[in-house]
Write a protein that binds this DNA or RNA. Structure first.
Ligand SMILES: [Zn+2]
Ligand SMILES: [Zn+2]
Ligand SMILES: [Zn+2]
Ligand SMILES: [Zn+2]
Lengths: 125, 125
DNA sequence: GGGAAAATGAAAACGATTGTCAAAACGCGT
DNA sequence: ACGCGTTTTGACAATCGTTTTCATTTTCCC
């Protein structure tokens, strides 16, 4: 529980959307922190390994992170414009994924599901 | 319809799994082709733009491609070990995704869904 | 065949991420 | 407050996938 990791966690918690390591670094530096980029990467890696933050990849291959309200399994509805995200659930999807996996003889079935769109506030601009 | 693009398309079609640009480049060179890495990237980009091949990102951020049997909207069940993939459908998921999107006021709703697991042949080893 | 336009590939540039390593901060027994 | 071994930090270099640049080669059409 280093103070730096806590700093990064809070920077993430302060945002409702997914943020990249470089975004967070820029934010922290802007508000006066002397944190290094390497440390931001390390903190995000640690936080995602413990499941405290969620990670996903943009179409460009960049990793973006989010400190969600729950650590339970869930998915996201993400705004393509501002990257704001809403946590969503889909019991039917969970069941379908494991069912289709086992149907084809796959074991250890997991899945990734993300829903994208333009949020109401971004649409009205 | 350059001959190089066709070469790349066939290299992809010859595989049942998702392959990276570098994989395909290595394969093609191994079988004697004098193709350049840049051209492989360009071909894959063109093929994915027209929807002829599907793309997804590995957890490490690498783009991997697959020439699927259909160009219709579908998803994949991918082996984590050998990357072999099966094309799957889930009408319920399609409906759920658009429903949850509009429920939160999002427009232009799309989604990404991938199912992962260990295929039977990889499990028996 | 000749020349404009498209395709090609080697090498350089790029951007995100990771590795290196010495300096700084910390924990703890004294 | 003081050493001192351990952990954390951050500047910088290195890596890796991908894109850009640009000169050369191929294709296409007359
Ligand atoms: Zn938005
Ligand atoms: Zn799920
Ligand atoms: Zn397999
Ligand atoms: Zn779908």
């Amino acid at each position: 529980m280093s103070t730096r990791r806590e700093t990064v966690r809070q920077a993430l918690t302060g945002s409702t959307g997914f943020r990249s390591a470089q975004d967070l670094y820029a934010d922290l530096r802007a508000e006066g922190s002397k944190i290094g980029l390497t440390t931001v990467y390390r903190a995000l890696q640690a936080l995602s390994e413990t499941g405290e933050v969620d990670v996903l990849r943009t179409n460009e291959g960049e990793a973006v992170y989010r400190a969600c309200d729950t650590e339970q399994h869930h998915h996201h509805l993400v705004c393509r414009v501002c990257s704001t995200a809403v946590e969503i659930e889909g019991p039917a999807v969970e069941a379908w994924a494991t069912e289709v996996g086992t149907r084809y003889g796959f074991t250890g079935v997991t899945h990734t599901v993300e829903v994208f769109g333009t949020c109401a506030s971004c649409a009205s601009r």
